[in-house]
Amino acid sequence: MHMRGAFAVITAVVLTVSVTACQKKKPPVARPVPPPPAADTTGSNRPPSPPEPVRESPPIPPEPITSDTLTDIDTINKNSPFTPVFFQYDSADIDGLGQQTLNQNAEILKKNQTWVITIEGHADERGTAEYNLALGERRASAARTYLVSLGVPAERLKVVSYGKEFPFDPAHNESAWSKNRRAQFVVTSK
């Protein structure tokens, strides 16, 4: 059997459908090329340095970190004087070690009276993404509350949670997770 008079009968109701299509595809944003390593002293692919005469020299003391020697906020954060506070799974409780860490961080803030910091709350990947936004906020807030109790003015302490968006260590094991459950301290103005 063949079809008869197939398309002869078109007309009647007219409805309109608004269709969005054919967006101009944005050119992909190029991933910035990382700068070449400036002073890679540990790089294994560097040719070995020529042997130097053995000489006894006193170890160079680490430079004291003060607002005089560091001018750039990025530089401060790259070599952050602050130690992160780490948390147990699904907990925002600050343990004894966390308190010690915060005591030290409070001292740094007292020495650098103009610094304003953001306390970032982070979570590991095992918790769910949405709840982790709240959990990270609780962790950051807990650190902030403790610092305020040590006398750091609350106005100098901002809080933001990134949930599990920015793991410190992307691996999928307890070692990575324990590093990722953290409150991290970032200087945002000085």
Binding site: V9, I10, A12, V13, T16, V17, S18, Q23
Partner: peptide
């Protein structure tokens, strides 16, 4: 972004 109007002319079963 371009918007396209899609006209539907229906006759369908009744026809």
């Amino acid at each position: 972004m371009t918007h396209i109007r899609l006209l539907t002319v229906a006759f369908s079963l009744s026809a």
